[in-house]
């Protein structure tokens, strides 16, 4: 599968997963957004030698995975983007921080090794938390939550439109790439002589499409502002969900 069609598949798949009728999916998007940001901030603020504390924070993704019936396999695939960089940076720690803190048999364990492991765990947990947010909440709902906290309408509308047209343009780019590949078999990537015309054609088509999109938006009553469907206020269930998790995070923080 090419990179373009892979991305197209990923977007559609995530949209389908997020629209499932699970208990976690029904939680108010603002609660899930706030909780995710607080969780990530909490995880990364743990000391770089506190492996026990960070491991305990793994309880959040484990439980949400079970509640939302989200696939572990898909989430692990997402780690491939982040983990190499995090691991590369972490690998230097044992070389620069060589203070021995304990011995496993005769093997000395240094504080640099501890910080390397915690950095990797932090990388995994933060990616999983973001994945769980998007796997249980659609982009439209996240944008709605952003509007509740008064993120300007221009920005939110722009995010929504970009998201809406990504799959359209990915499909178009994929068609162009397939046509190119058929005319230049066995060639990896795009030859430098056609860099400009290929991406330029896609750009011009996109601009023309933007004109059509604008016309259709005006015909449907667009006057420079988007109106979001009211998805209701946070209920008792949402507040309970938030409070329970905050208590858990706080308890882990205090105990470890």
């Amino acid at each position: 599968m090419s990179k373009l069609s892979g991305a197209y598949y990923e977007i559609n798949h995530m949209n389908m997963v997020a629209e499932k009728d699970q208990w976690v999916n029904q939680i108010h998007p603002l609660v899930k957004l706030v909780l995710t940001i607080l969780y990530i901030a909490d995880v990364v603020s743990f000391s770089k030698y506190n492996i026990a504390g960070i491991l305990m924070m793994g309880i959040y993704p484990i439980i949400v995975f079970m509640l939302g019936e989200v696939s572990w396999k898909d989430s692990i695939r997402r780690l491939r983007v982040v983990l190499p960089v995090v691991c590369l940076l972490g690998l230097f720690n044992p070389f620069f921080d060589r203070q021995v803190v304990l011995y496993l048999g005769k093997f000395p364990v240094t504080s640099g090794m501890f910080s390397m492991v915690t950095l990797m765990i932090k990388g995994i947990l933060t990616v999983l938390a973001t994945y769980l947010l998007i796997a249980t909440t659609t982009i439209e709902k996240i944008c709605y939550a952003l509007r509740i906290v008064h993120v300007p309408a221009v920005l939110v509308t722009q995010v929504l439109l970009t998201y809406r047209y990504i799959s359209v343009l990915l499909k178009e780019a994929n068609t162009m790439m397939q046509a190119y590949a058929l005319r230049a078999p066995g060639q990896k990537g795009i030859h430098f002589k056609v860099w400009g015309p290929l991406a330029g054609q896609l750009l011009l088509r996109s601009i023309d499409r933007a004109g059509t999109v604008y016309s259709s938006m005006v015909l449907r009553g667009y006057r420079g502002e988007f109106y979001f469907e009211d998805r209701g206020k946070c209920g008792r269930k949402d507040y309970c969900y938030l409070v329970v998790w905050l208590v858990v995070f706080f308890a882990i923080r205090v105990v470890l």
């Binding site: 990179k3 373009l4 991305a7 221009v154 509308t157 722009q158 929504l160 439109l161 970009t162 998201y163 809406r164 047209y165 990504i166 359209v168 343009l169 990915l170 178009e172 780019a173 790439m177 060639q187 990896k188 990537g189 795009i190 030859h191 430098f192 860099w195 290929l198 991406a199 896609l202 750009l203 996109s206 601009i207 499409r209 933007a210 999109v213 604008y214 938006m217 420079g224």
Partner: peptide, 21 residues
């Protein structure tokens, strides 16, 4: 605003095209 939205999608899609060096 619509132009920005579509251009954002274009950048996203175009960044997935590999250009041979």
């Amino acid at each position: 605003v619509p132009v920005m939205g579509v251009m954002g999608a274009f950048v996203f899609a175009a960044q997935m095209i590999n250009f041979t060096i």
